[in-house]
Design a protein around this nucleic acid. Structure first.
Length: 806
RNA sequence: GCCCGGGUGGUGGAACUGGUAUACACGCACGACUUAAAAUCGUGUCUCUUACGGGAUGCGGGUUCGAUUCCCGCCCCGGGCACCA
């Protein structure tokens, strides 16, 4: 037997696979298909880190198992290469982003190939390749033609450091997701995608998917569906109404005043009625200067100001209600206006502070503290029984809501309404390194899309990538590129200079993998039909409300256009936990604690690294890297290697055979549930047993190797060939266990006295209670517990346990 | 504040549908091999007790013959959302 030389073995087989391309897949309608997907990486300058393989290897194990089960498996890889870090590096070094991207891809490719992941490299894609982004632009034009891509002047989140507009999803606690600086507001014309049109389906259709529950919950929270009513409050001395969204129409009878967002457009419209306009403008100005952080600060005192002279009418009571503005009412949610009563803490506090009326109409079901509530000493926010509510008195909040809505509806003052927190997606970026938006602004015709045949609209080659202080894209200064002809009237026109956000390319890439070389369509109909949708998609939780939601939106749109065969892109979505640095801190470039897999691959081999990463803990849980523990994985690999020394041609040990079949079952099931750590531990148990008995048949060894091959593809392949097998281990069928072997006739039966374990007895599986009782009475350790005791009760579970209560 | 996870040895963790808690691995200790060390192999390793036994799965209760697992009330840690009407 040779020494185990991981470097030699891994290089050898990687070369074979490079030549033979065993993972290259072709559409074949006769074969069942399986589409496995990982989030394609951003090729950063830092290279791969140990977090990447966790996901790649996990899906690799599943993909390899599926191939062994006879599936036609698509497991592709590519590059999500547009993005800020590359552009920033280009600014710093003067090297063209395309060149940087190319170099980084080279490094990533080499690193990923050194891990032995069974990707189909023939379908490799790169989102910055004009052949790819031609179709990203094409899909954008479909959005535009359908009226779902539109331009809007709006206050955007502006990062003054990166000098870029951010989508709401990219703002974390009022700070830029990338650089952490406080985000400012800026008025700017922006391209928007109308994701809110799909809010309801994005929520509802989650039911059809097999996503892990926490992903569904997080998306649902983000979409923020809430069902309630739209209520109209008549403005006194006018024919106009203020619309208010509420989920608590049961409290309408206690509505005593109205609160508008400080930015509400009716304030301007009715300024002639407002008698304290100076004060009001002052307050509005103060609010507009506040940052997101200040405005949402928990300890901030509640503020607001009444609009003197402006009154509305409560649609339920007909009572005259004053109107005020307060910063806690948000312009962009609901209608930017709420009605206030004593059943909301903020309304309650504000009324006390600026001296506005309050009324109570809900009594708690248990009536605790009702006197205090009724005397407006404390605020009760819960549901309860209505009172002070004329014909609805005595109803519960839940009963009352539909009744009040339909009553007001007959008067034309209310309707059922569903509201969403989700906002439309800000789709422009004022940056160079992104897909140019294929639009022309014509002096005569206005906004004109570029004809399809002119796609791709390529990024012009420039020397300076710096964004500009005024918020314009660097493309704006390339007059030669900007000045163009209108495709419509051939007159003077200017190109759109904003580019798409880095989420654009990744919103449909899984479709391109189905037919990556097609130059007539983003993917051919037959290929779309065959691959249908992604069967299993693994990725990080951090993409739940960004990439995952965006791509579901794009896919649904394409489905509505009749361009894809399914309404959901991904059948199943799972998520890996992050790998943390040693000590439990997050790995990051700035902390300087990023662990690169190359060292481990060199020192102990890719097979060992793969086993270590799969064994380190539950797959969905964050876990700290521990270099010491790699030794355990390496020892295991060496033990498997050494079985060659004592494996024999013919002997079969029956106990071992049972253990092996148990292990086939365990490993097969654990892979499906992504319980890779326990799958490996069960194989370790087999190997430890092999070592102990030193009496292992070749067939038994082969089963172990077959089970281990998806985890450690190189050295299992090597041993396989040493054992004189002609074919690759990876094209061998997945082993099946023999259920008869698992149902043994004799079992260890646990004997308990008063629920405490006092011994175990080996007995026939279907031994009766009385026979078992007789048998155990002779055993001294058990006998001593029951002698001279009154037996009160006996619990017997056949083939498992006997509990005697004395 | 709301919504998800989670809390088990020195460490990472295991435990089916309520049925032998601590599998597997790391570390450590001791032993074997060695002139020596590394590697490897073997033994031990929750805790109290000399022992018989007892006690331990964040804390306090409950259900049960029996609870890491189910129920109620807390505490702590991680993640997400957050003035959302």
């Amino acid at each position: 037997m040779n020494q185990y030389d991981h470097n030699k073995i891994e290089k050898k087989w990687q070369n074979v696979w490079e030549k033979k391309k065993p993972n290259k897949v072709k559409e074949n309608p006769k074969l069942k298909k399986f589409y496995a997907l990982i989030e394609f990486p951003y090729p950063s300058g830092a290279g791969l880190h140990v977090g990447h393989p966790r996901s790649y290897v996990a899906m690799d194990i599943i993909a390899r198992k599926r191939r062994a089960e006879g599936f036609n498996v698509l497991y592709p890889i590519g590059w999500d290469a547009f993005g800020l870090p590359t552009e920033n590096f280009a600014i710093k070094t003067g090297i063209h982003p395309a060149k940087i991207t190319k170099d980084n891809i080279k490094i990533f490719t080499k690193q990923i190939k050194s891990l032995g992941v069974s990707f189909d490299w023939s379908r490799e894609i790169d989102t910055t390749d004009p052949k790819y982004y031609k179709w990203t632009q094409w899909i954008f034009l479909q959005f535009f033609n359908a009226g779902l891509a539109y331009k809007k002047k709006m206050t955007i989140n502006w990062c003054p450091v990166d000098m870029i507009g951010l989508a709401n999803e990219e703002v974390i606690n009022g700070c830029c997701e990338r650089c952490g600086n406080v985000v400012e507001k800026k008025e700017k014309e922006q391209w928007m995608l109308a994701i809110t049109k799909y809010a309801d389906r994005l929520d509802k259709d989650l039911d059809e998917t097999d996503f892990i529950e926490k992903v569904k919950i997080q998306q649902r929270n983000w979409i923020g569906k809430s069902e309630g009513a739209l209520v109209k409050f008549k403005i006194l001395n006018s024919n106009e109404y203020i619309e208010v969204f509420t989920t608590r129409i049961d409290t309408i009878f206690s509505g005593t005043y109205l609160i508008l967002a400080p930015e509400h457009k009716l304030i301007k419209e009715f300024s002639n009625q407002i008698t304290n306009l100076n004060e009001v403008s002052l307050y509005q100005k103060k609010v507009s200067l506040m940052t997101e952080i200040d405005r949402t600060n928990e300890n901030k005192e509640i503020t607001g100001i009444q609009l003197n002279g402006l009154y509305v009418e409560n649609p339920a009571t007909g009572e005259k209600m004053p109107v005020c503005i307060a910063d806690f009412v948000l312009e962009h949610y609901g209608t930017g206006a709420v009605f206030a009563d004593a059943h909301d803490k903020r309304d309650f506090d504000l009324a006390k502070k600026i001296n506005l009326p309050l009324k109570v109409s809900i009594k708690p079901k248990n009536e605790v503290d009702f006197d205090k509530i009724n005397n407006l000493e404390i605020c009760y926010e819960g549901e309860g029984i209505l009172f002070n509510s004329s014909q609805f008195d005595g109803l519960s909040s839940e009963e009352a809501r539909p009744k009040i809505i339909s009553w007001l509806n007959t008067k034309g003052l209310a309707e059922i309404k569903t509201n969403y927190k989700l906002k439309d997606w800000i789709f422009s970026r004022q940056r160079y390194w992104g897909e140019p938006i294929p639009i022309v602004h014509c002096e005569k015709c206005g906004i004109v899309p570029i004809p399809e045949k002119e796609l791709p609209l390529k990024l012009p080659n420039i020397k300076n990538y710096e964004p500009t202080q005024n918020g314009e894209s660097p493309l704006a200064s390339i007059t030669k590129w900007v000045n163009t002809k209108c495709p419509n009237c051939k007159g003077k026109a200017k190109r759109e200079t904003d580019t798409m956000p880095n989420w654009a390319g990744s919103s449909w890439y899984y479709l391109r993998f189905m037919d990556s070389k097609n130059n007539k369509a983003f993917a051919g109909k037959d290929n779309l039909k065959y691959w249908n949708q992604v069967d299993w998609y693994n990725g990080g939780m951090e993409h739940t409300t960004l990439h995952l939601l965006y791509s579901r939106f794009w896919h649904k749109f394409l489905f509505d256009q009749g361009l894809v065969p399914t309404s959901e892109p991904y059948k199943k979505r799972t998520s890996h936990g992050m790998i943390l640095a040693e000590g439990g801190e997050k790995m990051s470039k700035s902390r300087g604690n990023v662990i690169n897999p190359d060292e481990s691959v060199k020192a102990v081999g890719a097979d060992t690294l793969r086993i270590y990463e799969m064994f380190m803990g539950p797959f969905d849980q964050a876990i700290a890297w521990d270099t010491n523990n790699i030794a355990g994985a390496r020892r295991f690999v060496e033990k498997v290697w050494k079985i060659q020394e004592y494996v024999s041609e013919s002997t079969v040990n029956n106990d071992l055979e049972i253990l092996i079949h148990k292990t086939i079952k365990k490993v097969s099931e654990d892979i499906e549930e992504m319980k890779f750590n326990t799958a490996i531990s069960s194989m370790m148990i087999v190997v430890n047993e092999f070592e102990k008995v030193k009496n292992v048949s070749k067939d038994q060894y082969k089963i172990l190797l077959r089970l281990l091959a998806p985890f450690a593809p190189h050295f299992t392949e090597e041993i396989w060939s040493i054992l004189k097998n002609k074919n690759s281990i990876h094209s061998e069928e997945w082993p099946k266990y023999n259920p008869d072997l698992l149902e043994s006739d004799t079992k260890m039966i646990v004997i308990q006295i008063n629920g405490k374990v006092r011994g175990t007895v080996k007995a026939n599986n279907d031994i009766s209670e009385s026979d078992l009782r007789k048998q155990i009475e002779d055993i001294p350790e058990i006998h001593k517990w029951i002698v001279n005791q009154e037996i009160k009760k006996v619990v017997f579970i056949k083939g498992k346990l006997l509990n005697i209560v004395v």
